[in-house]
Design a protein around this nucleic acid. Structure first.
Lengths: 203, 203
DNA sequence: CCACTTCCGCATCGATCGATGCGGAAGTCG
DNA sequence: CGACTTCCGCATCGATCGATGCGGAAGTGG
């Protein structure tokens, strides 16, 4: 693998910053989705040739996988941070606030890469579609685990259903992503999130 | 326009049922999205040649527009019916129940055509993407108008915010569509919708 | 039965899709 | 400086994309 740091990197070094190029690719995938982003658009935005892209990242699907990892740790990092909030209420608040902020940036792309990246695809995109499905399920699972901990800690009432609450919060987050993809503004979505959290926790 | 019923339909009649073919096309678009559905897949499923498709529907984008109309009046008809419920609470309940039922059918397609049909696209799909954005906004606007009426009728408390409530219900519906596209089951989503409505109306 | 209209099977269009082979240039080592 | 490794510009691959031209077949109304 050329992308892994070899112990003996002899030869001509690559003439571009792979991290920079991956960031550009991530933005293109985020905006246009997996199948909507052509190799031509990707490589042009990345500033490299198709040859360099294949040498550095493997193929289009591998590039998308790496771009998704970068998204998860970058723009999508609010989820990990939210899970570290002290109470379930603050976790939910941070998730929705982070979703609103990330999906309604003043400049494109809008929406969530994990939602609009490949919600439905042709047969060729099934792999990526399933990857994003798993990505969303992982997110929901993390929230659920966090809420289970909250029940154990007495932070949530004993009768609370962590799975249901996690599904509720993530459903709102995915819905916000869809609204944001359609251009709905940050203030309106945040106001709605505030209202939804006013009745927290659901019973 | 060949698709409009002419007053003098002389000549050889077409050898297929246009409504049947449109139904098939709608299902393909629903499952794979606008750009994920190729002409080859569409015409093969419709059981007609590309020539017949172009003669009957114009082009791929026109076919999608007509398929969306059919979806709106068919599988998506629950929205119109829901708006006729007597109270805002029943409207919201019917919308979410209809969304869950429609997006989690036992056989594919799963999800909502208005959400996954073209959430993000290449440049060539911008027209359809904007069409679906308008479709979702129309839906939200209809719900908002219905909730405004509910406030006027005293069905919702005077302090209620119809726009916010409409945004909340549609956000949940879009989120449900995303969850369903990923394979989340009908029972789980309905249970979450029930819980969300237990705190209705939001303040 | 005839003249006319429409339908549709077949072949194909140019553009673009993702992906690759080749070979000289560039840079790193001993 | 020389041997070796890697990079990358260029050309191009076969497949598929949406869309169309042509012409005989089919069915119409008079």
């Amino acid at each position: 693998m050329r992308t892994e740091q070899s112990r003996n990197p002899t030869g001509r070094p690559r003439g571009f910053d792979a991290e920079e190029a991956l960031e550009k690719a991530m933005l293109v995938f985020w905006e246009h989705g997996y199948e909507g982003a052509s190799l031509a658009t990707l490589t042009q935005t990345m500033g490299i040739s198709t040859t360099s892209m294949y040498a550095a990242f493997g193929n289009k699907e591998e590039l998308f996988r790496k771009a998704l990892e970068r998204y998860t740790e970058g723009p999508g990092g609010y989820l990990t941070r939210a899970l570290e909030e002290p109470t379930a209420r603050e976790v939910a608040t941070a998730i929705l606030a982070g979703t609103v902020r990330t999906t309604t940036r003043p400049t494109p792309p809008r929406g969530c890469m994990g939602v609009q990246g490949a919600l439905s695809t042709s047969d060729a995109g099934e792999g990526v579609r399933d990857l994003l499905t798993a990505w969303r399920n992982d997110g929901c699972g993390s929230v659920r685990a966090r809420f289970e901990r909250a029940v154990a800690e007495g932070d949530l009432p004993p009768g609370a259903d962590p799975a249901l609450l996690a599904r509720y919060v993530t459903t709102l987050a995915f819905g916000i992503a869809v609204q944001a993809a359609g251009g709905i503004g940050r203030e309106e979505l945040q106001a709605m999130a505030d209202a939804a959290l006013r009745t927290w926790p659901l019973t």
